[in-house]
């Protein structure tokens, strides 16, 4: 059974990591989690980013956060990627699978997945 003692072990393990993290995060992934986003399937998208960022050991570089409705409900689930010195990228109609591709190609590889962006969706 999971115990609070196990949680205390996590605390001990993480204390050392906290010091390393002071470099600051370079990329911020923001998932829209208002009624519109949640109803359209934002929860698994958020989970895919949270799990993916951890799996790829990117937690020092990337933070995954939630936001409310940004006003483009028809394109939900919406994910915005902010990176210092670069223009914000807005991904629309996301799924967990698309999140994985964004993680690999954009977050890790630095190449925007154009076909999932709002610019591409508006052209279609």
């Amino acid at each position: 059974m999971k115990s609070l003692a196990e949680l205390a072990e996590i605390r001990e393990r993480m204390k050392s990591k906290v010091v390393l993290r002071e470099g600051g995060n370079e990329i911020r992934v923001v998932v829209g989690m208002a009624t519109c986003g949640i109803a359209a399937g934002a929860r698994p998208v958020l989970n895919a980013f949270v799990e993916g960022v951890n799996r790829e050991s990117l937690t020092d570089k990337v933070t995954v956060t939630q936001t409310g409705c940004i006003g483009i409900c028809q394109y939900e689930p919406v994910v915005e990627v902010f990176q210092a010195g670069k223009e914000k990228v807005t991904y629309v109609e996301m799924t967990a699978e698309k999140a994985e591709k964004v993680l690999q190609e954009h977050i890790k590889g630095g190449r925007v997945v154009e076909e999932y962006t709002i610019t591409h969706a508006k052209k279609a």
């Binding site: 949680l7 996590i10 605390r11």
Partner: peptide
């Protein structure tokens, strides 16, 4: 109470726990 101020509740390991 167990984690104190060092470890945020949304650390991946804590969320997994």
């Amino acid at each position: 109470d167990v984690l104190g101020e060092d470890v945020p509740l949304n650390s991946f390991e804590v969320l997994q726990w």
